[in-house]
């Protein structure tokens, strides 16, 4: 359903846009209906950039992004974009920026209604909103009819998830949506994503919480400096990480009952086998992948 084909993104940075910053490098991946693909990777590795390109907020510098076969850069005009967002929605890392402070927070629901459900009666709409708010485990009494500053971070984030649920979407881009939630609510949101996936929703799930990230995801993609370091079925990637960067990342997952120092010591005692990584020439900006076992790929070594 979602397909990225050799996508690159280079930003212009600096006062006069003179500098170049390669945020995404040669990324190809797919999200099928009913599939959850986790995007994992260090801060600044291009995860949000990929999400924003899928949502049409930035154009790729090169490469193609298609949704249900349509190249999304060809979607132009108000009506076509509106149809696109009926199918594809995003929930972003920083919920405060998604709310206008001078309006009540539930205006985000009203906006969905006026664009997509103008014919629905007040009573039906209210039921729909209450159902969505309930699914993200918020008490309507506590959150509706309030201004953004009157709500906590986790409450705002869940309102945005609820908003996305009002539309019968096909693809959800979820950028760090669980990071500000407590463990118990995280699990509820993840179970909710699991249910949506059963109904055929495709999810691009950006997360840094590896212990929970793999709880719902089918495929994991580990990014490093804009390029794919490793990609494969989640269980394989976690049980048998091949790229040195993935191994490092997994060793940093904070665990209960095991300190980082203990994990480091174990790793040093049984170092994993080296894997041959693909290589590219210095001035080549491609990022080839090598299939190490079926469906499990490793990418270039970037130091």
């Amino acid at each position: 359903m979602l397909e990225l084909d050799r996508v690159h993104k280079v930003y212009r940075v600096g006062a006069f846009g003179g500098g170049r910053l390669r945020a995404v490098r040669d990324v190809s991946l797919t999200v099928k209906p009913g599939e959850v693909v986790s995007l994992i990777g260090e801060s600044g590795s291009g995860k949000s950039t990929i999400g924003k390109m899928v949502l049409g907020l930035f154009r790729p510098t090169s490469g193609r992004i298609t949704v249900e076969g349509t190249d999304i850069t060809t979607i132009k005009g108000f009506a076509a974009r509106k149809e696109y967002y009926r199918k594809v929605q995003g929930v972003f890392q920083d919920p405060f920026s998604c709310f206008n402070p001078i309006f009540k927070a539930d205006r985000v629901f009203e906006m969905i209604r006026s664009s997509y459900f103008p014919g629905v009666s007040d009573a039906d709409w209210r039921d729909k909103v209450l159902a969505a708010v309930g699914t993200v485990r918020l008490d309507p009494e506590n959150v509706l009819n309030k201004y953004p500053h009157q709500l906590s971070g986790g409450q705002l984030q869940r309102l945005l998830i609820a908003r996305a649920l009002l539309l019968d979407i096909k693809l959800l881009v979820a950028d760090e949506i669980i990071s500000m939630l407590d463990a118990s609510t995280r699990i509820d949101v993840l179970n909710l994503l699991g249910d949506l996936k059963e109904r055929g929703l495709g999810i691009l799930f950006v997360t840094h919480d590896l212990s929970l990230g793999n709880y719902v995801s089918d495929t994991s993609v580990i990014l490093r400096k804009g390029a794919i370091a490793e990609m494969g079925p989640t269980l394989r990637v976690f049980d048998n990480p091949l790229h040195p960067y993935s191994r490092h990342l997994l060793s940093c997952v904070p665990q209960l009952h095991r300190t980082w120092a203990e994990v480091d010591a174990e790793l040093a005692a049984n170092p994993p086998e080296d894997v041959t990584l693909p290589t590219v020439a210095e001035d080549d900006d491609s990022a080839p992948l090598l299939e190490a076992e079926e469906g499990h790929f490793v990418g270039i070594d970037q130091g």
């Binding site: 699990i187 179970n191 699991g194 212990s211 929970l212 709880y215 719902v216 989640t234 976690f238 997952v253």
Partner: peptide, 14 residues
């Protein structure tokens, strides 16, 4: 959850 648990094996409850 412990690292490595999946929704298929055990559904965690909040």
């Amino acid at each position: 959850p412990e690292v490595g648990s999946t929704a298929e094996e055990t559904r965690l409850e909040g």
